[in-house]
Nucleic acid binder design. Sequence first.
RNA 1: GCCCGGGUGGUGUAGCCAGGCUAGCAUAGGGGCCUGUCGAGCCCCAGACCCGGGUUCAAAUCCCGGCCCGGGCGCCA
Length: 434
Amino acid sequence: MGCKRGACLHMGEEKVRVHGWVSEIRELGKIRFIVLRNWEQKAQLTLKKGVVPDELFKITDELTQESVIEAEGELVKEKKAKAVDVEVIPHKIVVHSISRPQLPLDPNWKVQALTPTRFDNRPLDLRRPEIQSIFKIEHTLIKGMEDWLRENGFLRVFTPAIIGAASESGAEVFEVKYFDRKAYLRQDPQLHRQLTIIGGFERIYDLGVNWRAELSHTPRHLSEFRSIAVEMAFIRDETDVMRVEEELVKAGIKAVVEERQKELELLGVNLEVPKTPFPELRFPKVYDILEEMGKHVEYGEDYDTESERLLWKYVKEEYGSDFFFVNRFPFAAKPFYVMKAEPPWARSVDLLYKGLELSSGGQREHRYEVLMEQIREKGLSPKSLEWFTKFFAYGAPPHGGFAIGIERLMMKMLNLQSVKEAALFPRDPERVLP
RNA sequence: GCCCGGGUGGUGUAGCCAGGCUAGCAUAGGGGCCUGUCGAGCCCCAGACCCGGGUUCAAAUCCCGGCCCGGGCGCCA
């Protein structure tokens, strides 16, 4: 009863083995309670004088909070401890590690550490069941999305993280020493996804890490973040890409709703599977919507952070959705590789969730001559992009894709205060350790 | 990068604006009492003003500089 995989090991009859971190030790004269916490549940060891061997009292005398132990004993059927999942009368206890007292933060959360303290001491912070829930949910979200991609014929590929030329998208890149040359950490797997398409792979995705050397101090930016990035060939237009993206997000959330109710509850999140298709807003109508909401954005220009929140409010009221696409961004605000629509707009699509940009994508320009013309239009050096563009001269299908920021999706899905909460060991301009 | 706000025991806070006895409280830690606890309770003990300079009889408190952190904006996903 009450034992879950990895939490208790049944050894026959009522004998079990439990392990974990000591979350609490309570001493009541002739009885000692040791509460163990592991990633599945809480177990209480009950040591009654005269009932368990004196030896066990001696062994557990030196125990401190957060020490790691393992025990074997009898599972108590009518357990009296209400705050734990299982109760065990031990006959054997093995101490693996004694924790030093005076913890830099309390995993029991009696005193709540501040954010910098938490991230400075992240391994201790991660012991909190709520925090573990975030990453269990992330696992299931990704699993749900990958399952959907596989079922729909997408192949997982690994594109390079080190690139010999700073790819052009506007974001600052990290420079790395590459033998006797300079190279850069990718800010997005975008260009190599496109080259993979040109390589004849028609539906692919890349699940990986991206880096941005931006001095961004906001709850929605990380210097290192992960994305699930999809690219597909032989599309009719960017709406084909949007249909894939919304189903992908829906599948991920559906998996979370179905498999992670306990964790959602622990985080106090009431999550529902979104309805598809997601509403779509297009430029230039976006300007009118914003104007009506009292926000003026110059025609032909990109909108700002406030506009994203206003558009969410609009979509929420009009369509009752937390997700929406914004399509046909001004070409001027987007990179050279996007495909133009009727000027000055582009087949460039953002997916927003609760007012935050989750992804950028759309249809790419696959026609060599047009691509080269757009590079000139952007004032970029054709020479520096030749490593990328030259393959478009040897047969490129119409294609498109997008990259969803995983931490951002997690943040909005779980109503987290910051994307950093969705990173195991977050990296920002101030933090590279631990 | 810009604009705000903040650094007090291991952790989290009060005190700062209106400078002044042994810097208060919670929690964690050490010790003691209690046979079943449910964030147990009660008693005792130990533990702190970010760094540097200045003003003053006197600085945690006021001023200047530095370092670090948080929030917002911008950049960006």
